[in-house]
Amino acid sequence: MPYWKLYYHFIWGTRNRLPLIDSVIEAEVYRAIAAKATDMGGFVHAIGRVEDHVHLVASIPPKIAPAKFIGDVKGNSSHFINHVIKPDFEFYWQDEYGVLSFGEKNLSSVVRYVQNQKQHHADGALIPAMEQMDEI
Rank of each mutant, 00 (worst) to 15 (best):
I60E: 00
M1S: 14
K105C: 03
D123L: 15
V29L: 12
L18A: 13
S108A: 15
M40W: 05
S77A: 10
S77K: 03
H55S: 02
H83G: 15
N76R: 13
Y7I: 01
I11N: 05
K5R: 14
N82M: 10
E135H: 11
I127V: 15
A58D: 01
D88R: 12
P87R: 08
E135N: 11
I60A: 00
G124L: 10
H45L: 00
P2R: 03
P87C: 11
G71H: 07
Q117H: 10
P2G: 03
I81A: 06
G42P: 03
P128F: 02
G48N: 00
E131V: 06
K68G: 01
D123E: 15
A46G: 08
H53S: 04
L56I: 08
H9N: 09
L100T: 13
P128C: 04
P2D: 06
P19F: 04
L126T: 14
Y113I: 06
K74M: 09
S59H: 04
R31A: 15
H79A: 15
I70Y: 04
N16A: 11
T38E: 14
E26Y: 08
S108Y: 05
D39L: 10
K74N: 09
W12Y: 09
A129I: 08
D72I: 02
R17T: 01
R49D: 04
V73T: 03
H121T: 01
H120N: 14
A122Y: 14
N82A: 14
V114D: 03
R17C: 05
Q115P: 11
V44I: 14
L56P: 04
V84R: 14
R31P: 06
G103F: 05
G103P: 02
K36A: 01
L100S: 13
D134H: 10
A129K: 12
P61V: 07
W93Q: 04
F102R: 03
V114P: 07
W12H: 06
S101E: 08
R17S: 03
E90C: 12
K118A: 14
G75E: 07
E28M: 10
P62D: 04
K118H: 13
F91Q: 05
Y7A: 01
V24M: 05
I64K: 00
P61E: 07
I47M: 02
I47P: 01
F91W: 02
V111H: 01
S78C: 14
F102A: 03
V50H: 01
K74V: 10
G48W: 00
K86H: 13
A37D: 03
A129F: 10
W12G: 08
K63R: 14
R15W: 05
P19N: 06
E96P: 09
Q117Y: 09
K105R: 15
V57D: 03
V110G: 02
F80G: 02
R15E: 11
I60T: 03
R15N: 07
V111Q: 09
I85C: 09
A58Q: 00
I47W: 00
A122E: 13
F10G: 06
L126K: 10
F69H: 03
I60S: 00
L6C: 06
L107K: 08
Y113M: 09
D123C: 04
A125Y: 07
A32L: 04
V29Q: 00
W4M: 09
D52K: 02
